[in-house]
Design a protein around this nucleic acid. Sequence first.
DNA 1: GCCGAAAAGCTACTGCCATTAGCCATCGCC
DNA 2: GGCGATGGCTAATGGCAGTAGCTTTTCGGC
Lengths: 186, 186
Amino acid sequence: MPRAGLSTQAVVQAAVEVIDEHGADALTLAAVASRCGVAAPSLYKHVGSLAELKIQVGVRVLHELADRFAAAAMGRSGQDAITALMHAYRAYVAAHPARYAVMPVDPLHHPALAAAGIRQLEVIQAALRPWQLDAAAQVHTIRRLRVIAHGFASLESAGGFGLPDDLDETYQQLIDTFFDSLPTHS
Amino acid sequence: MPRAGLSTQAVVQAAVEVIDEHGADALTLAAVASRCGVAAPSLYKHVGSLAELKIQVGVRVLHELADRFAAAAMGRSGQDAITALMHAYRAYVAAHPARYAVMPVDPLHHPALAAAGIRQLEVIQAALRPWQLDAAAQVHTIRRLRVIAHGFASLESAGGFGLPDDLDETYQQLIDTFFDSLPTHS
DNA sequence: GCCGAAAAGCTACTGCCATTAGCCATCGCC
DNA sequence: GGCGATGGCTAATGGCAGTAGCTTTTCGGC
């Protein structure tokens, strides 16, 4: 009886692969166990429950997106940086549509997810710095960005747009009107 | 053994009530059967499967929202009509957050859902008529509206906004910037 | 190198769920 | 009043999450 040498992170990785290959609904302990070459109850040595595994997957996905954000913003500023963030968001969701379905939309309400959520927020706040918005305006501005990015990405990844034509153009229009809503910056 | 007198629509109604009371994840045939005062297998006389029931619930919810749309647009035109539609959308989702989680985002891709989806679309097209957009511009404009409404509503209903303050203001800003993106109409 | 404890597997089991099969009571119509 | 269609039932299957308790491996301390 050789040991499989699992770890919590290995189980999370297998879970992400299951999601990528068979969709978010196919994330079951049985499927993850099978992919790990292990019996289902053995997974409980590494994760507390299916619900906890889903949270861990959420953490992983949030961090991946935060990484893309950080990479996209690096070396850019102002309008250029925001545009890069928006495209990074859409590109991540397009590359991993099933992962987006398990990305929690309210990370700040869960302690295990908050850190990953805050990482994303900080990158956006930094990119908005040139506009010198006051606190209230900054809240509304980040919300508007989020609505646009999440709204578009969730519809696109779920096949919500009837025709797939010219989606780049639609997204660009949304980004353009977002900039129109901002005061001109220094 | 008196008869319960069920029907497909009664089962769908019970399913909606289960969703309203216990969330979208609690929609199970066992729960619906219990609410109908019937054993679970009896439901199969009225619905083909749980998956089919979910689609029927989707149809019901799409039609409810289309009704709200039609009511909101009635007697209004132009900017006034669009504003009313956007508020109707948000109000419906706020009143029935759990139903929104089961509302299909790609109704046009499923024959049973398409009719309900098209009803919504037609109301929006009518409201946009004063701007006399050409076909391509109309597609992008409706997509932008949908992104804003769905993005905001899905985040709000899922508790995605960290602080609940001033959400009216954020939504109004989104609507305002949408109008800024339109040409001035007759 | 050895030993003991912790860690990582396993099988067996429970309970919930969807779904199927097949039985029986009820209803509506003639 | 009888008969077929309809709507309900119980029993059973198979998949799933999760628990209990056992066995084997691993590894640090000696």
